[in-house]
Computed example of a mutant assay.
Amino acid sequence: MSQAIYEFPLNEKVRTYLRLEQLFKQLVNANSATENWQFIHFFSSLFTLLDLLERLDLRNDVLKDIELHEKNLVIWSQHPNIDTEALQQSLQKILRLRESLKGTKKIGADLKEERFLASIRQRFSIPGGTCSFDLPNLHYWLQQANADKIRQVQTWMQELSAIKEAIEITLSFLRERGRFVQYEAEKGFYQGIAEDKNELIRVFSSTDQGYYPMLSGNKYRYAIRFTMFTPSMQGNSSVDAVVPFKLACC
């Protein structure tokens, strides 16, 4: 049976973290890029990420989360069955990230001022605006040796490495807070009550039965409704059967 995990944030902070995580995954693909369109996709994802970072002051939120992880690791160190070596490695990583984030100015500021990136960024907001007659300097860059382009991409990404790592650690801790439990949705509908600490709802569901989950609600109460991907001839997309699924509240 084919299955997938759907993630639904319950607050704006986690929603932003998930969006950044997805963009970083797209950017990492540029490390193995060989075609021009792959590098153009890298620039598009990079500028989208920088737009998101510019609209938000993420550093304070991320620092608070990192410091919370540090406190939790110190508490866990008192547990008799804890893997001390692994915990110490995690703690050192957290401390290094905290100092790195504290020592930086606004995240992505240097990339915003980088001459080449600044010269092509605006055109990426125009549909189809990356043709050679729009951005001859971009197409000159694309004709350079692939190894040189990869090195340049890695240099640009280095400035974002601390926030990338911090987002990865924060979401990892968050996901580990919840364990999947089996449930059933009568007529494709399930309603639950969120606890105070819940920030993310994860749904583990089949992808070969023609339906997918949708979530509505807030940090107090939420509802999951399974919807048919292809509506019936009458236009009905609701699921009438009992839907088995797994749920993790994180």
Rank of each mutant, 00 (worst) to 15 (best):
S132K: 14
L215I: 15
K187Y: 01
S119V: 15
T34H: 10
L18Y: 06
Q38V: 04
A241W: 01
L91Q: 10
N29P: 00
A4S: 15
G192Y: 11
W37Q: 00
Y17A: 11
E113W: 09
E54N: 09
K106Y: 12
R221L: 04
L50V: 10
A33H: 04
R225Y: 08
V28R: 07
E7N: 06
R115K: 14
F124Y: 09
N72A: 02
K13D: 00
M214S: 10
L23I: 04
T230G: 00
Y140D: 13
D57R: 11
Q26T: 01
D51V: 06
L101F: 04
A4G: 06
R19W: 07
E113Q: 15
E113I: 13
Q234A: 13
L56E: 08
N60V: 08
E21F: 12
L56F: 07
K93M: 05
R151L: 09
G103P: 02
E199Y: 09
M157L: 15
E195G: 13
S237E: 10
R115E: 14
L117A: 03
F116R: 05
F43V: 14
R177I: 08
T155M: 09
F180Q: 05
I107P: 00
K13V: 06
G129H: 06
T130R: 05
Q122E: 03
Q122V: 04
S44I: 12
K102L: 14
L63V: 14
E195A: 06
